[in-house]
């Protein structure tokens, strides 16, 4: 059955009844857990599927239940629990949807309680940023609580969103012959990425363009046009710290394939 499907697919591609996009991804840079990828050969809907997939369907860890035994700090129990919930937690690949981990804190003042004071019962899961401020304790104040972190997706709550994702088209600068090289556009560009190249204006780095169109507005002659490439995107993944951007993408692809299978199954049942 699978062989037949493969042959059918191949024939369809040859007859051009079906098109397959060849997608290439290149990493541009990574700093502060923010990775930028240049994605070529993707359609707008495809790249948006990746974005939404990361935000809604990629499993990650976050604190779900907090049992507070002692909290003498000035922060209310609810506020404390909320702060703990928002904290990103690193997890191993072995974790699957619905898995749970226990975390414990025990502290006595005077001190500042940081995320590094939280002890995990499983070495594979730990708090992503050790410097997160949780609360402060004065003299003789005590904090003793237990947390249960759960693997879930961003569909349930934003605390399970593994990254902030955005994408933008790669722009192309089209300069007509009316350009008199007054350099107004170069002066106004907030990113400072325009330069005089021969008799026209060009980008020094098109990937750094924020698509603000200040150059288009600044041109008195209306000689500059900013054209977007509909098949080339810059995908920006800003990890919350739980997983690396690469792990996030591969985990998203897996989750989306699973969704596709579900559609297939439902379709097979439909008459």
């Amino acid at each position: 059955m699978q062989k037949e499907e493969k042959i059918q697919r191949k024939e369809a591609i040859e007859k051009k009844e079906m098109t397959v996009m060849a997608i290439s991804i290149k990493k541009l840079d990574e700093k502060h857990d923010v990775a930028r990828y240049l994605v070529k050969g993707a359609s707008p809907s495809f790249i948006n599927m990746i974005r939404r997939g990361i935000m809604l369907h990629t499993p990650c860890l976050a604190v779900e239940k907090v049992s507070i035994y002692e909290n003498d700090s000035v922060m209310f129990d609810e506020m404390l629990a909320h702060r703990l919930g928002m904290m990103p937690i690193k997890m191993d690949k072995t974790y699957k949807m619905g898995d749970k981990v226990k975390l414990v804190v025990e502290k006595e003042g005077p001190c500042t309680v940081y995320a590094k004071d939280i002890k995990s019962t499983d070495p594979k899961a730990e708090v992503a940023d050790k410097n997160i401020l949780i609360t402060k304790l004065e003299k003789d104040q005590r904090l003793r609580l237990e947390m249960e972190a759960e693997v879930n997706t961003g569909e349930t709550h934003v605390k399970w969103q593994p990254a902030i994702v955005s994408y933008k088209e790669v722009p192309e600068l089209v300069v007509s012959k009316d350009c008199n090289q007054c350099k107004d556009c170069i002066k106004i560009c907030p990113e400072g990425i325009l330069e005089v190249k021969g008799k026209t204006i060009a980008f020094t780095d098109p990937n750094a363009c924020s698509l603000c169109r200040a150059c288009v507005d600044a041109c008195g002659k209306g000689a500059i046009k900013l054209v977007y490439n509909k098949n080339e995107y810059i995908l920006i993944i800003e990890s919350a710290g739980g997983m690396s951007p690469k792990e996030i993408i591969s985990s998203t692809v897996k989750a989306m394939l699973e969704k596709n299978k579900e559609i297939g199954k439902a379709l097979a049942k439909a008459k």
Binding site: M75, M86, M87, A128, D129, I132, L133, Q161, I164, A240
Partner: peptide
């Protein structure tokens, strides 16, 4: 009271960089 763990609008974690700032 204390710096929120994440940004209200975009959700970026900030409480970890506040003391260094």
């Amino acid at each position: 009271m204390m710096i929120p763990v994440r940004c209200f609008s975009c959700g970026k974690q900030l409480a970890g960089v506040y003391e260094e700032f």
